[in-house]
């Protein structure tokens, strides 16, 4: 008695089309949601009943720029984000390199530890910073906590973790063999790193700078706890949105949000342009 065999048919083209169609619908839905968020902000500013100007966007932006508090917040945001991005990459390059190239005792523990600022709730990061700085001498503590340096420290605590992840991925994608060949050609490890490995990981460095900058721009929770939200002192654009909302000026809050969206989009486009050709996060 022969066993019965099931009839097998090769999958048809319609099966492949359905597979791609399902994924496309999911992607399109999410992309549409993000687009709707932006359109809603733009529509609110453009068609706000309080704004009777024939150039509603220009009027809304000019009105924001006329406010000394918002100008101060914008200046502090640009300066603190830039310093944070530079500091983050300064730490991320050696950290990412070591994690990518070497296996040392406690390697996995260090790797997991570096992810903590990414996975912790932002308020907890801020609270932890606040508690940590209680152990500093009083003079130093008062010079940092609820002052402008606290803004940079709070932004750095989270942005740097993202930069380390990116730099590790960047070094993972470069060929270690090239550095070894460079050593046989007469280089020390330092020279091989500076002349061969770092130039090859350069798109990753640019991506790490831009992502760290964008993360710093969007930082809010740790800032609120550790640096406060004092106008003309520790206020950055993300806290401006919060402060404008808290005094009921929704229009100003949305306008500042659109300024942040514009800055974030510019940064993301820059990262994509610089990094996408040879490097994938």
């Amino acid at each position: 008695m022969t066993p019965t065999t099931r009839t097998w048919r090769p999958p048809g083209k319609h099966s492949d089309r359905a597979f791609i169609a399902v994924f496309s619908i999911i992607l399109a839905t999410y992309a549409f949601l993000i687009l709707l968020l932006l359109v809603a902000d733009i529509a609110y500013v453009g068609w706000s009943p309080q704004n009777n100007s024939s150039w509603p966007f220009a009027e809304a932006f000019l009105s924001a720029f006329r406010s000394p508090e918002i100008r101060s917040a914008m200046t502090l945001t640009m300066i603190s984000c830039t310093i944070t991005a530079i500091l983050s990459v300064f730490v991320a390059i050696p950290a990412g390199y070591l994690l990518s190239r070497y296996r040392f005792p406690g390697n996995r523990a260090v790797d997991a530890l570096l992810d903590i600022p990414i996975v912790l709730p932002p308020l907890v990061v801020g609270l932890s910073l606040l508690i940590l700085f209680q152990f500093l001498p009083r003079g130093m503590r008062e010079a940092i906590v609820y002052e402008r340096p606290a803004v940079i420290i709070a932004q750095f605590a989270v942005s740097c973790a993202f930069a380390v992840r990116i730099m590790r991925a960047a070094f993972d994608q470069t060929d270690e063999r090239c550095a070894q060949v460079a050593q046989t050609l007469g280089c020390s490890r330092r020279q091989a790193f500076l002349m061969v490995e770092l130039p090859e990981a350069w798109p990753g460095v640019l991506t790490a700078v831009t992502i760290a900058w964008a993360r710093a721009l969007g930082e809010f929770g740790p800032l609120l706890i550790f640096a406060g939200a004092t106008r003309n002192k520790t206020e950055v654009l993300s806290t401006t949105v919060f402060l404008e909302l808290s005094i009921g000026d929704l229009s100003a809050a949305v306008t500042v949000s659109l300024i942040m969206v514009t800055a974030a989009v510019a940064v993301v486009l820059t990262a994509r342009t610089w990094g996408s050709r040879t490097f994938n996060i």
Partner: peptide
Amino acid sequence: PAARDVGYVPQDGALFK
């Protein structure tokens, strides 16, 4: 490796990109 005076050609060439 730098002090050995040895030229090395790895399997895939490992050219500097």
